[in-house]
Simulated assay, not measured.
Amino acid sequence: MKKDELMGKELANLYAMAKQVNQFFADRTISFLSDYSHGLLSQYRAVSRNNENQVLESLRRLEINPGNTVDSVVREILENLNDILSKKDLEDDVREMAFVMSLNRLVHYHMASMANLEYGTEAL
């Protein structure tokens, strides 16, 4: 594998991550979040939507088809978030804490992928 191929795979993975996140949060209202946590989520959703569009354009320019790539780590975090959303037996403050902790994992995993692309671009 060459460096440009590795970068193509990383770019396709970043696209998959953003697409999964955007599909998960589309038309979803989370009523138990505080205004602050809701603001954090709104900011992340906006970044992820923008990221999906920008990465898709880059993939098209590079003539890379991401196919149906799914990031297994993102899938696991989103499953955890879904479990938290469906648990009605938890107090709202506990649900919020669990949700934000999982959201932080997701955001930082997303950031790590973008850092990998930045590093790879510099290494080319």
Rank of each mutant, 00 (worst) to 15 (best):
D4M: 05
D4H: 09
E5L: 02
L6Q: 11
K9R: 12
K9N: 03
K9S: 05
E10Y: 09
L11F: 00
A12S: 03
Y15F: 09
Y15P: 00
Q20P: 02
Q20S: 06
Q20H: 02
V21I: 12
V21C: 07
V21Y: 05
Q23E: 08
F24G: 02
F25A: 05
F25V: 05
R28P: 10
R28A: 01
R28W: 03
T29G: 11
S31D: 09
S31Y: 10
F32A: 01
L33K: 07
L33V: 04
L33D: 04
S34Y: 05
D35M: 07
Y36S: 15
Y36P: 04
S37E: 13
H38L: 13
H38W: 08
G39L: 12
L40T: 11
Q43T: 14
Q43A: 15
Q43P: 12
V47E: 10
S48Q: 12
R49I: 10
R49E: 02
R49D: 05
N50S: 15
N53L: 13
Q54L: 14
S58G: 10
S58D: 10
L59I: 05
R60Y: 11
R61L: 15
I64S: 01
G67V: 03
T69G: 00
T69H: 08
T69K: 09
V73K: 11
V73C: 08
V73W: 12
V74T: 06
R75T: 11
E76S: 14
L78F: 08
L78T: 03
E79C: 07
N80G: 11
D83P: 10
L85N: 10
L85A: 01
K87V: 13
K87Q: 12
D89H: 05
D92P: 04
D93N: 14
R95V: 01
M97R: 15
M101H: 13
M101Y: 06
L103Q: 08
L106I: 06
H108D: 01
H108L: 09
H108K: 13
H110G: 06
M111L: 14
M111Y: 08
M114T: 13
A115W: 12
L117K: 08
Y119T: 05
Y119E: 13
G120I: 02
G120A: 00
T121S: 08
T121L: 07
L124Y: 08
